[in-house]
Design a protein around this nucleic acid. Sequence first.
DNA 1: GCGTGTGAACCTCTTCACAGCG
DNA 2: CGCTGTGAAGAGGTTCACACGC
Lengths: 213, 213
Amino acid sequence: MTGRKISEKTIRRLSHYARCLRHTRIKGKKIVTSEYLAKRCSISSAGVRKDLAVFGEFGKQGSGYDVQELLANIEKILGTGKPLHVIVIGAGNIGQALLESGLEGTGGYSYSAIFDSDPEKQGKIYAGIAVQPMKELRETIRELGDNIAVIAVPDGEGQKCVDQLVEAGCNAILSFVLEPLDVPEGVKLRYIEISTELDILTHSLMRTGRIGR
Amino acid sequence: MTGRKISEKTIRRLSHYARCLRHTRIKGKKIVTSEYLAKRCSISSAGVRKDLAVFGEFGKQGSGYDVQELLANIEKILGTGKPLHVIVIGAGNIGQALLESGLEGTGGYSYSAIFDSDPEKQGKIYAGIAVQPMKELRETIRELGDNIAVIAVPDGEGQKCVDQLVEAGCNAILSFVLEPLDVPEGVKLRYIEISTELDILTHSLMRTGRIGR
DNA sequence: GCGTGTGAACCTCTTCACAGCG
DNA sequence: CGCTGTGAAGAGGTTCACACGC
């Protein structure tokens, strides 16, 4: 089932709303207003209403949005909310940390496997999951079905790793590797860039005169 | 020295150009074209030229941009390129992994200290840096001078941690904690959200019919 | 000729103000 | 009366085409 085109910015906000609603649900609150979501997601209430109204009339005028119902709708729009396997490539510091940290409260994701090309690391167990050799990648991906890969391999090994993933049938990758990576048409790739986030903070500090540069 | 207002989107691109230029410099290349940067940063060449032209005429018509000179200019605009201390709060899996991974090739950043409120963890050494108790936060920040804090503490401890940082004089925070955090006016705060990145990938997979939802 | 710098057109996103429904 | 849904206005960002300098 293919949905309509939604901008990345909107998807990011929907993801925030979903996270906020899960948290709200746990607290036992049943109804929220656009103002409530707005405050917690650092956005205007009009923005929240506009985001939600595009996909249907989820709200009840005079009261607000039903938490459970709105969350279900957002998860349907995003395609999240159902279990989805996340596999990790690279059992170094980052890879281990990801597994140990887990993905609880994220709407269906869970780490299901970890791979490393280093025989020294293979067989070690993190968060109950044994490190597998790369040659088992294809087989494991076939067994798991739908999945997203997170790569956290040393600099210089990123492209090789991506190629193996693509070849094994993975078509969504989240990279902690900063090298520009090539993927075939149709394979989705995103980056987590700590250094860029630091740059943004640094610029902000400089601009407001909080550090001398 | 306060600079003009630049959008976050532009700063993010400048950060990418800088990273690319550092890499290019290592390869020994002296001149690059807007097309060269465009390819590697997944953007149009007109976009690259527009970004750069706003801050001065860095390019030479007919040839391109001098790598070293352009990098220096971008770093000046961003306020990066000079050494800047990054301190980590939380010596759990993520905190350890960050220190061990280091910040080489990022334009001046380096991890300089790590703190944890758990006495069990205090004194342990990661990447040559000993875990300090939180009560030493203020003193260390004063000694280090300009800094950015990265917080990687357990869920529920984020706000307390932020409050202590702000109180100790830190005014830029990068958070791995997903709770919405409050900071006073003037303190800069950003989030690294793996679950949101996964949501964006999931939606993209669904939209292109690569997973059934 | 090659590649930069730039004005203009175009498109997207955000904000505002308010009508309308419960 | 409260809060949603929405058209209109405004702001910001991107793309295009081309003049200009090396």
